[in-house]
Each structure stands twice: as C-alpha cells, then as structure tokens.
Computed example of a mutant assay.
Amino acid sequence: MTLLEIIILAIIQGVTEFLPISSSAHLLLPAELFGWVSQGLAFDVAVHVGSLLAVVIYMRKEISMLTVGFLKHGFSKNQSNESKLAWSVVIATVPIIIVGYLMKDWIALNARTALVMAVTTIGFGLLLWYADVKASLTRKLDSMGFSSAIIIGLSQVLALIPGTSRSGITMTSSLMLGFDRESAAKFSFLLSIPAILGAGLFSTIELIQQTEAVDWMALLYGAGFSFVSAYLCIYLFLNWISRVGMLPFVIYRLTLGTILLWFVFG
C-alpha cells in the first residue's frame, strides 16, 4: 500500500468504527472506486489497535469507575450503579462472542458483498431514524439494567452482517429502550471495547499463523492515524449528538447505500 492509501484507510476505520454509519461499507468503497487491494490482516489488526486505544483513553474515567465498582460490589447482593453497568457491558457482549465464533466463517463467505452492505446500510439507517424520532430520551446510563443489556446485546449480533454498523444498531436499540442520545452513544462506546478487542485477538491469532512479511511502518502509520481520527470522532460525536440527533447520519447512510446499489446494478 502507498502512504496515501494507508492514511485514508486508517482514517476511515477510526471514524466509522464509532459513528453509526458502518465501517465495512466504507472500507469496501476504496476497492470499488480505485481498485485498491485488500489492506491485509496485519494492517487490519493495527488500525483496530489504534481505535481501541482511542476509546479506552477517552473513556478512561468511566472505565476506572466501572472497574472499581465491579471489584467492590460486582459479586455482592447490593450492586452499585457502577457494578450494574459493568455487568451490563459483560452481559451485552456475550451474544456477539458466541454467534461471532460460530458464524464468522459463514458470514465472511456469504454476506460480505456490496449488495448485502447496500441493503443493510439503507435498512438499518431507516431503523435508526425511526428509533431517534420515536425515542423518549428519558433514561440515563445509570439506569441501565440487565434486561436492557440483554436486548442491546442481542441486537449487537446483527452487526456481524456487513453494513449494519455495530455502533448504529446498539444506539438504535438503546434509543428504542428510552435512553437519551448521549447515554446510548456512551454505552455503545463501552461495548466497542470488548468487541474490538475480541475481533483483534481473532485476527492476531490468524496473523500469527501466516508467514507473510510485515511492513511495520505501514502498521505504525495505520495505528497512529486510526487512533487520532477515532479519538476526534468520539469527542465530536459526544459533544454534538444531543443537539443534532441522528438525522445527518441517516441521510448519510441512505446516500452511501444508494452509491453501493449503483455499483451493484450500475
């Protein structure tokens, strides 16, 4: 890959990982538009490491509180708000781990197509719009309970279908459950930590089994640009989402899905 390709792909990964617009659909576009080859497994791991570091550093206060709360009250009868939220993250992560492990190869062979991404980008974009319009926006993050975590966790499984958007579907289900936009976004970001970590570990295991030479400078640039773009994305999104709502992202998804359909049928 050229340096320009590295920068563009890393920024795409960093930004789209946390916005409700689907990272997989965006990573398909450069290949369709410019004929770029796959970035490779090592580069994929690197940009995910950058995104993971960004969300961990940005959410460090929340992570610290959840960790302390879990260690103090996680196994007691009297759960604190922090320990309940920590358990909610764990509970909501279990479904995607199980289904992802069982279905990963089938999805890679059968669902990673431009048509699937186009349909899911548009369909789940409309669902996000509906959830945002109908949302009561009355619940805060500290009211997250185990039943809500289960529902959000089951919805996150749909993110295994390319084009759905992990952040998009978890925010959609949170909004439908009555959470305000900032709380929905924060819980989605907390869920992204084990999700990205798990995906990264699977990719790392596959990478270890390969014998191809690794371009370490490409990985360093990829991780760096992914980190910076992801951190800025999280910061701006959380500062703007309560004011602008989800409509701009819905419009963007509909436009992106239409472009993908043009590639398929054009």
Rank of each mutant, 00 (worst) to 15 (best):
L254I: 13
M59A: 09
G69V: 06
I96L: 09
V90I: 15
I107Y: 09
A86S: 05
I208P: 03
I98T: 12
S64L: 15
A230F: 05
S242N: 15
T2R: 04
E62F: 08
L220Q: 01
S24E: 10
S147E: 13
T255G: 11
L190W: 14
L9W: 01
A184W: 11
V214S: 00
T211Y: 10
G245D: 09
L207R: 01
A131N: 04
S183G: 11
G50T: 01
L19A: 01
F146V: 11
F249C: 06
R139K: 15
L177W: 02
I193M: 05
G125Q: 06
C233R: 03
P194E: 05
N110S: 14
A42P: 00
T170D: 04
P20M: 12
W262C: 15
I91F: 11
W216N: 05
T172I: 07
L126C: 10
T120Q: 04
I193A: 05
S203W: 00
S64V: 14
V37E: 14
F34D: 10
P95I: 12
L201Q: 11
F265P: 07
S22L: 06
G74P: 02
P20C: 06
K77Y: 06
T204D: 02
P248V: 08
F187K: 03
W240D: 08
H73C: 13
D142I: 09
Q39I: 02
L109S: 14
V45C: 00
F43Q: 01
Q39P: 07
L33M: 11
F34P: 11
T113N: 09
L154C: 14
I122T: 08
L191H: 08
T170S: 08
T258S: 11
A135Q: 05
A135T: 09
R112C: 07
F124V: 12
M65K: 14
S173L: 12
T16V: 09
A131E: 03
G168R: 05
F237Y: 14
W106E: 15
M144Q: 05
N81C: 06
V47T: 01
I196F: 01
L261D: 07
K104R: 13
V45I: 12
A185G: 14
Q39N: 13
A213M: 08
Y101N: 12
A159M: 03
W262V: 12
T16Y: 02
L191A: 06
I241Y: 07
V49N: 02
A54P: 04
I208R: 04
Y101I: 15
L261E: 08
D44K: 00
P162M: 06
F189N: 05
C233V: 08
F179C: 08
S226Y: 00
V68M: 13
N78T: 05
I196G: 00
A159C: 05
I97G: 07
A223V: 00
N239C: 11
W262G: 15
L4V: 13
A86C: 10
W87H: 07
I6C: 08
L53G: 12
A25E: 04
L220K: 00
G178L: 02
W262M: 14
Y130K: 12
V45Y: 00
I7C: 03
L191D: 02
S192K: 06
G168K: 03
I193P: 01
S174G: 14
P20Q: 13
G163D: 07
A25W: 03
I241V: 09
E5G: 00
E82I: 04
I57E: 08
L85I: 06
W240V: 15
I161R: 08
L207G: 03
P30E: 04
S80I: 04
I208S: 12
L247D: 10
S80H: 07
